[in-house]
Amino acid sequence: MHSAITRSDGGLLRRGRGTGRLPRGIVAVCGALVGMVMLLTVALAPFGATANATMTTSGMFITISAKAGDGDSARPLAGDTYSVAYVAEVEFNADHTAITGFKTNTWFEDVDRDWGKLTSSQYSAAAKEVVAYADKHDGYTFTDLRTDANGKVTTPSLNFGIYLVKRVGVADANKAYRCDPFFVMLPETNGSTNIDDWDYRVTASPKFEQIATPVPTPSSPTPTPTPTPTPTAPGESSIAKTGAAVMRYVEAAVILGAMAFTIMFVRAQLRLRRKER
């Protein structure tokens, strides 16, 4: 089967074997033109193509680095889980050299803010409100991002925008530490208008607060009940009552002794009389 290419004079140039093949001179000229176009493309790339390629979202992500404490003594909080929500898009100027504003995503329009004008305290308050909204409406883009032994976890590739990060699961060994939800912006411009200086791989370090562990109150031993003293009449003491009881025993003993002596005496007299008879 042959194919045909339309000529400028209205005729046909047949491509294939024999007389229909293009002259070698034309082929050489076409090859030279293609080479020149490729060279121009490479030479002009830094003025346009490279800049646009830098603004793609490939390889842009957030790394959460969770550690309690500061410096070398900081303790990695391994085994915790985090959720991430895509809250707002970033808007750029025409040549993508500056961020001009933010557009809240449709999912979070009910908690819309002028994100570029919030103070630190307003961001904290907004984070709590957005978290409540995301929890209620299942608004998280990524869930169950678990920190490794170094307390780190990295999200999949992300778009430009403002993201909400929330700690949703706490390992038993980390229950003494808490952190509030927070926002992260991609990219971080670092105050520069040069996009090559921007940070497209942001590391976010949550601020942890140690929760005071309640000290259990020792239980008091059950007191031994104190015996209640027997009440005494006015002017009378328990010692006096004890002495009176003893005297009654003595009196009874004397009476019984006297009765025994009398019986023995009577018996003795009776015996004497019997002998005299």
Rank of each mutant, 00 (worst) to 15 (best):
P76Y: 11
T155G: 13
R17D: 01
K128L: 11
T230P: 02
M36G: 05
T203S: 06
V170A: 01
A125P: 10
I5C: 10
P181D: 04
A204S: 11
I195K: 08
V130L: 04
A260D: 11
K241D: 07
Y200V: 01
L77M: 11
A98V: 12
G20T: 10
R75H: 05
D135P: 00
Q269I: 10
R271G: 07
S83Q: 03
I195E: 08
I64R: 11
W107P: 01
A212G: 07
S237T: 09
L256W: 08
S65Q: 00
K136M: 07
G11P: 02
G71W: 05
L44T: 15
S157V: 12
V84E: 05
S8L: 07
Y82W: 09
R167I: 06
F183K: 02
L256G: 05
G69I: 12
A98T: 14
D112A: 14
E109G: 13
A49D: 00
R21Y: 02
A68W: 07
R24Y: 12
K207F: 08
P156V: 06
R7H: 02
D110H: 02
S3C: 10
V37A: 15
R178D: 02
R15Q: 00
K207I: 09
S238R: 03
S192F: 05
K275L: 13
I64T: 11
I239T: 14
